[in-house]
């Protein structure tokens, strides 16, 4: 039997404002020295997880926020953003059978 089926709380739906416990948000790292404050990343972010403040961009870590799509990473003309943490849900909505993240691979 797969491991996730053995888990008793698998079927239990939880309120997902319990950050860390039932939901782990994605995180991006912004190199403040490279950022020129153009705001493209904030405009691209579907989760409104990025905020432009004092001509620099920073992350908001309240719900709802980053789902680690990487759209901000891709759009930044300065290469100032890096994807660090990956979005994960717990319990009922848990993502299964995932491995290490990577860029497109050539085999």
């Amino acid at each position: 039997m797969p491991e996730y089926l053995k888990c008793k709380d698998w079927w239990k739906i939880e309120s997902f404002r319990k950050l860390g416990k039932d939901i782990i948000l994605g995180t991006v790292e912004i190199d403040r020295a490279k950022c020129k404050g153009c705001g493209l990343c904030a405009g691209a972010c579907a989760a409104s997880a990025l905020e432009l403040k004092d001509k620099k961009v920073k992350m908001i870590d309240v719900l709802p926020a980053c789902m680690s799509c990487g759209d901000c990473v891709a759009i930044c003309p300065r290469g100032a953003i890096q994807l660090k943490g990956y979005f994960q849900l717990k319990r009922y909505f848990r993502y299964l059978d995932r491995g290490e993240p990577s860029l497109p691979r050539k085999f």
Binding site: C38, L40, G43, G70, D71, Y95, R98, G99, S102
Partner: peptide, 15 residues
């Protein structure tokens, strides 16, 4: 698009 949004990003791998 505004800017150049297209580009490669890392994604999780699946079993």
């Amino acid at each position: 698009p505004r800017g150049v949004p297209d580009g490669q990003v890392p994604r999780e791998t699946q079993a």
